[in-house]
Design a protein around this nucleic acid. Structure first.
Length: 114
DNA sequence: AATTTGACAGCGA
DNA sequence: GTCGCTGCCAAAT
C-alpha cells in the first residue's frame, strides 16, 4: 500500500477554518472569502479551499456548506459529484436557482444567523 | 529549498 | 454582463 495513511493535518489555519465552517447553520452557505475574512485572512480564500480539501471526516465539518462567491458548488471531484453537494444543501433547506447556483441573496450565511 | 498548483476573491477594461 | 490580471495561504512535487 502506498502510504494509505490519512493526510489529515489540521494546522492552526485549517483549524480556524474548520471552527468557522462548523458554525454554519443548516440551510445556509458561506463563501471561502467570508470564512477567510472571519478567521483573520480575508485574502486567504484559496487557503480555505485547501483546508476544506484536507478536511478530516472525523471533525464532522459541513464542508458542503462552503461554496464560492458565485454560489456554485465544488468542481465535482470533492463530494463524489457536484450533484451530491447540491443534494445535501437542498436537503438542508438551501435554495438553488434554475441555473444550478445557490441563491446567495437568501442562503448566504450571516453572523446574525448564528 | 524552490517552484507549481489549487474547492477563490477583488478590481479594471 | 463578460474577460483577464493580481494577491493571498497552504500542500504537493
Amino acid at each position: 500500500m502506498r502510504n494509505t495513511m490519512p493526510k489529515g493535518k489540521p494546522n492552526k489555519f485549517s483549524m480556524r477554518v474548520y471552527a468557522v465552517v462548523a458554525g454554519i447553520p443548516a440551510g445556509k452557505v458561506a463563501t471561502y472569502g467570508q470564512i477567510a475574512a472571519y478567521i483573520g485572512n480575508p485574502l486567504a480564500a484559496r487557503a480555505v479551499g485547501e483546508a476544506m480539501r484536507n478536511t478530516p471526516a472525523y471533525l464532522d465539518i459541513p464542508c458542503h456548506r462552503v461554496v464560492n462567491k458565485r454560489g456554485e458548488t465544488a468542481p465535482g471531484h470533492a463530494f463524489g459529484g457536484s450533484g451530491k453537494q447540491r443534494a445535501m444543501l437542498e436537503r438542508e433547506g438551501v435554495l438553488f436557482k434554475a441555473n444550478g447556483t445557490i441563491d446567495m441573496r437568501e442562503c448566504l450565511w450571516r453572523e446574525k444567523d448564528g
